[in-house]
Amino acid sequence: MCVRVLMCVCAGVSAALQIQCYQCEDVRQDDCSSPEFIVNCTVNVQDMCQKEVLVMEDGIHYRKSCASSGACLIASSGYQQFCTGKLNSVCITCCNTALCNGPRYKRRAASHACRPSVSHYTAPLLGLIQLYLCSH
């Protein structure tokens, strides 16, 4: 019985590691959050969505893509000091749910959408705990 539970947990983890994100490069004014910009991220490699918002003289520019969690979190923390909302501002955000780098609907919802959840990181740990408990 314990082996079956562990197999189910592991199967759920592998399915959860592919997400969809919006992807576009240097789009002005439009935040490229329509269906034609949706892509499937690389399984087990790109586990987050990244969104860059640049405020330039000719308007707001958007870049969106799939990203690995390490690269995205490093980039977002490195540019945090430049995220002012003023001219030449660069804001980079990371999130790990489907299409989370899309439009901001409500301020409250957006703050939760860009906070990385750890559910798919903790699932393997739960599987190991289950294995340990079943063997003792």
Rank of each mutant, 00 (worst) to 15 (best):
V3W: 02
R4D: 01
R4G: 10
V5D: 04
C8V: 10
V9G: 04
V9F: 11
C10R: 05
S14W: 08
A15K: 03
A15G: 01
A15Y: 08
A15I: 09
A16I: 03
A16G: 09
A16P: 04
Q18K: 13
Q18L: 11
Q18F: 04
Q20G: 09
Q20E: 11
C21N: 03
C24V: 05
C24W: 01
C24Q: 03
C24H: 05
C24K: 01
Q29H: 05
D30E: 11
D30W: 01
D31S: 12
C32I: 05
C32H: 02
S34H: 12
P35E: 15
P35A: 15
E36H: 09
E36I: 11
F37A: 06
I38K: 11
I38D: 01
V39R: 07
V43P: 11
V43G: 05
V45H: 11
V45T: 15
Q46L: 05
Q46E: 15
D47F: 04
C49T: 08
Q50D: 06
Q50M: 10
K51F: 10
V53Y: 03
L54A: 14
M56H: 12
M56T: 14
D58R: 06
D58F: 08
I60M: 12
Y62E: 05
S65G: 07
S65C: 03
C66G: 02
S69T: 13
G70P: 01
G70L: 09
C72V: 02
C72M: 03
I74Y: 04
I74W: 06
A75V: 09
A75L: 10
S76Y: 07
S76L: 10
S77T: 15
S77D: 13
S77M: 08
G78T: 14
G78R: 12
Y79I: 13
Q80S: 12
C83Q: 08
K86E: 15
K86Q: 15
L87C: 08
N88Y: 15
N88W: 12
I92M: 04
I92N: 06
C95F: 02
T97G: 02
T97A: 04
L99H: 05
C100D: 01
C100S: 08
N101K: 07
G102E: 04
G102S: 07
R104M: 15
Y105F: 12
R107W: 12
A109Q: 15
A109G: 07
A109N: 11
A110C: 04
A110S: 08
S111L: 14
S111A: 06
A113D: 09
R115S: 02
S119E: 13
Y121A: 03
T122N: 10
A123Y: 14
P124L: 07
L125F: 15
L125G: 14
L125Q: 13
L125N: 08
L125W: 15
L128I: 13
Q130R: 01
Q130H: 09
Y132I: 14
L133S: 02
L133I: 03
C134E: 01
C134W: 00
S135V: 08
H136N: 14
